[in-house]
Amino acid sequence: MGVVIILTPVVIGSWPLIAAAVTAAAAGLGLNVSEKVREGLHEEERATEQQVEVELEESQVLAESVASGKELVLTKDGITLKVTRDARGHCKICASGKGYSQTELKQMAEQFSQKVSQCFIYNRTVTELKKHNFQTVNEDVTEDGTIRVHVRRWVD
């Protein structure tokens, strides 16, 4: 009853908001997180490591909110994911790791990208709903990783 809408999320926010979603996504996938100033790879690392870049779809990191050269670094099982803001303001994820194929790294980067998007939309939506006096009735995560939130408010 009512209206049903299907939406494609747009991830636009300040670096702290994006970083919060990245941290939540990392926790969900069991990755360790640290924030660093960007450095180039050493020559020997370039020679031995596969590297894949993916862009967080429909993303925009507000320029004034991110210090130059900052990146979030996530690690797990020899794979390193680096999250940065590219020159066009989009959020970029770079996956690298010794002993992994390009396909495996791309799969990991894309899985992480989707999780960041999911966490960002969850944080943004729930924050806005609470601002407008909606209360959570039920919230769960299904086996396939889908987040379901049911909120309610009473109107005079």
Binding site: G2, V3, L7, S117, G145, T146, R148, V149, V155, D156
Partner: peptide, 22 residues
């Protein structure tokens, strides 16, 4: 008073479904 409910489903791939009830 009227009860307004919203059900939001955020899939693993990022697609969002919103159902407004009431």
């Amino acid at each position: 008073m009227a009860q307004h409910d919203i059900e939001i489903t955020i899939s693993k791939t990022g697609e969002v479904r919103v159902h407004v009830k009431g």
